[in-house]
């Protein structure tokens, strides 16, 4: 920026953090409007439900990633951990034949346990989060293949398992809008995470850690314990994603998962959460995840060639972060 820049921002109003959410939200609206105008098939109940369904797994993963990223950390293991949790559910339900709630509980506990391990390695052993979760990513990928015998585990013996994601409790009350349960679970997880972030000590320390970890330590807070807590909670949320994807596919696919962490991180970043920590919102992440799936779905409906879909998604990620940088510059 040189002295030729317009003197427009002389005493511009203070732009609050809400602005970025507004920006992401208006981006989402703009996309929806553009696609609706471009194709009559876009704004159909069935298609909107398909978009929401496509958002559910990535949305839940992104929420987990948001928690960790706000602490200034990163979790590369969310994708393969999701698979691991799905496989655990498969073992409990299909191999052991136990009742469905135990399978769900098992998946969530497996996620929490893995988060505890990651958090402990990061907080106690001081291994940087990038490395620690990269290691966990591979460990979990391998364990999923080992436990499953490298074959998908099908849930054919657990009737109703695929209703967790695909069924619609809402549809029984309002038959016109059969919102899949998976989507309602996403919203429930989002509400829970937003509550924890905004209203509980765990949430407060999540922001505080990302803002200035040393200051938190000097304030007499048991930094390690809370940090492990954040990773554990993120792990538990990933466990929910594991149940969702297993239910949707009616199987635990052990080879799946790697690469999903990047989509989750993309949703977080588009939603305005800073990778350097200290700031972020669940609502933003939800919008970020929706932008990704609206984009993918809309471009498909418009029969845009797949090569170009990828290019456009990349552009949106860079644009979103650039918008965030502009926002900071004007702050």
């Amino acid at each position: 920026m040189t002295d030729t820049a317009a003197p427009a921002v002389k005493t511009g109003p203070r732009i609050s953090g809400a602005f970025h959410r507004l920006l992401a939200f208006s981006g989402l609206i703009a996309l929806v409007v553009a696609f609706s105008l471009a194709s009559p098939n876009f704004m159909q109940t069935q298609n909107i439900l398909a978009i929401l369904q496509a958002t559910s797994v990535n949305g839940v993963l992104a929420i987990a990633a948001t928690l960790v990223i706000i602490t200034g950390g990163i979790d590369l293991s969310v994708g393969t951990l999701m698979t691991f949790c799905a496989v655990i559910a498969g073992v409990i339900l299909t191999y052991w034949g136990l009742p469905m709630p135990l399978g769900i509980l098992g998946a969530i506990l497996a996620g929490t346990a893995s988060g505890l391990v990651s958090g402990t390695v990061i907080a106690k052993l001081k291994v940087p989060p990038f490395i620690a979760t990269l290691g966990m990513m591979l460990i979990l990928k391998g364990l999923s293949l080992v436990i499953s015998g490298t074959r998908p585990i099908y849930f054919n013996d657990t009737p109703g398992f695929n209703q967790i994601a695909l069924g619609s409790v809402v549809g029984q009350v309002f038959p016109a809008v059969p919102v899949p349960n998976g989507v309602m679970i996403l919203f429930a997880v989002a509400l829970l995470a937003a509550f924890v972030l905004g209203k509980t000590a765990l949430g407060r320390y999540t922001f505080a850690l990302g803002s200035n970890e040393e200051a938190v330590r000097l304030s007499g807070v048991n930094v390690d314990r809370w940090k492990i807590g954040v990773y554990a909670m993120a792990g538990g949320i990933v466990g929910v994603a594991g149940v969702l994807i297993a239910s949707r596919l009616n199987s635990a696919q052990p080879a799946l998962g790697q690469g999903y962490e990047l989509d989750a991180i993309a949703a977080v970043v588009i939603g305005g959460t800073s990778l350097s920590g200290g700031r972020g919102t669940i609502l933003g992440t939800l919008i970020g995840a929706l932008i990704i799936s609206v984009l993918a779905n809309g471009l498909r409906i418009l029969s845009v060639a797949q090569e170009w879909q990828t290019v456009v998604t990349g552009c949106i990620i860079i644009l979103a972060v650039y918008a965030d940088i502009l926002r900071r510059r004007t702050l």
Partner: peptide, 24 residues
């Protein structure tokens, strides 16, 4: 606002790109 204009402009450009890719 400089940035809002940028982003919305870019989104509409993308939307145009998308519709341009649509075969009639």
């Amino acid at each position: 606002m400089l940035n809002r204009r940028h982003l919305l402009g870019a989104i509409s450009a993308l939307a145009m790109l998308a519709s341009a890719g649509t075969p009639s």
